[in-house]
Design a protein around this nucleic acid. Structure first.
Lengths: 167, 167
DNA sequence: GACTGGCTACTCGGATAGTGAATGTCCGAGTTGCATAGG
DNA sequence: CCTATGCAACTCGGACATTCACTATCCGAGTAGCCAGTC
C-alpha cells in the first residue's frame, strides 16, 4: 500500500505555485529543476493535476502551469485524488460472493461488515485530507518558516533567468 | 495506492477462525476452498500473519492455522500491518533536502509540514483500524447475520469431511 | 515609426520502453497420527 | 490388551516464475513571442 511518489512532488509543486505572482505560469522543467527531479515525469504528474482542474496549463514560449483556482478552494485530498485516483485503498472483491450461501443479487460492498469497517478507516483518512486546504498549508509554512516565500520566489527568478545574467 | 488483496483474505479468514472451536487448527487449503482462492498464495498470506504472532501454525496431519491469542486482543490494524507492512502510505522522500537552502542535518520527515499533514491523515486511518477488534467485528456480524457462525462451522465440517461421507 | 507576416523557440501532451513489487506456483523439510507387529 | 515402532499422509515454509502497475523517457502538435521586412 505504497502511495505514488508523484503525490509528494505534486504537493510541494502546488505549494510553490502559491508563492508566485497570480497568473504567472511555470514550466514543468523549471519546477523539476527546483528539486532536481526528472522533468518529463513531473510533467506527467502535472498533466493529471490539469485534468483534475487543479492547475491550468499554458502552451507556448512563456507557458507552463499555474493554479487553476484559489488555494483556499484546493484541498490536499483534491491533489492526492488527482494523482492516485479516487478509488479506495482497500479492495473489496466481494469475497463473500464466492462463499457458501451467497446471494448473487446482494451488493457485498455494502452488506459486508469487513468492507464497511475498512471504508470507515478510509473515510477518516479522506476527511483529514479534505479538512486541510492548500491555503492553510501555505499559511502554516509561512508561520514556521517566514523566509520560505521569498526564498522560493528568488530561486525561481534565478531559474527563469538565462545563466550568466547574475554573475 | 492500492492495498494488497491479501488483506481482504486475511480479514475474512481470521473472522472465520473466530467461529471455530478454540484450539482447532484449519489448513490453509481448506480456508482457500471456502472462498475458492488460490491455496498456496493464501498460505503465503497466513505465513505473514504467523510471523506477526496473530495466528499460530501447526504442522502435521491435523495441523493448520488457529488464532494465536484472544480475538479481543487482535485489532484490524494488526492484521493490515501484518500483510501490508508497517510503513506509512505516504512516502516522504525528503524532497526539501534537494531544494535550495537545504540543511543536511535536518530530518525533513519531521520538519516538512507537508509530511506532517500526510502523517496526520495516516494516523487518523490507523486510529480507526486500531479501534476495532476482531472480537468486535465478530459480534457485529453475529448481530446482523445470526446464522453466520453456524453456517461457517457447518461449511468447514463439510470441507474437513472426506467426500461421500455425508451422502 | 508602425504594422504585418513569418519564423523560431519553447510549451504541453500523449505514446512508448524499463523496472520493481505484488501475484501466483511449486517442491522440500518436518511433524502428526495411525496402522501394525510384538510383548 | 497394551505398547513400541515404522510408515504414510498431510502440514507449513520458503524458493522460484509471471504479471501488472509504477517509473522513466522520448518525440510530435501547437502556441506565444520575436524579428525582419514592408508600408
Amino acid at each position: 500500500m505504497r502511495m505514488s511518489e508523484g503525490v509528494e512532488w505534486a504537493l510541494h509543486g502546488c505549494l510553490n505555485l502559491t508563492w508566485l505572482p497570480p497568473g504567472r505560469a511555470v514550466p514543468a522543467a523549471k519546477l523539476a529543476e527546483f528539486y532536481d527531479l526528472p522533468a518529463a515525469y513531473l510533467n506527467k504528474q502535472f498533466q493529471a493535476l490539469a485534468r483534475a482542474g487543479i492547475v491550468a496549463s499554458t502552451p507556448g514560449k512563456r507557458g507552463g502551469f499555474r493554479l487553476a483556482r484559489d488555494p483556499e478552494r484546493i484541498t490536499l485530498l483534491d491533489i492526492v485524488v488527482a494523482i492516485e485516483g479516487g478509488g479506495e485503498a482497500f479492495r473489496c472483491d466481494e469475497l463473500l460472493r464466492r462463499g457458501p450461501g451467497a446471494d448473487p443479487g446482494t451488493d457485498y460492498r455494502q452488506a459486508c461488515l469487513v468492507s464497511q469497517a475498512m471504508r470507515r478507516a478510509d473515510l477518516a483518512w479522506r476527511r483529514e485530507l479534505a479538512a486541510q486546504t492548500l491555503a492553510g498549508l501555505k499559511a502554516d509554512v509561512e508561520r514556521r518558516y517566514p523566509a520560505a516565500p521569498e526564498n522560493t520566489r528568488a530561486r525561481f527568478a534565478e531559474l527563469m533567468t538565462p545563466e550568466g545574467t547574475t554573475a
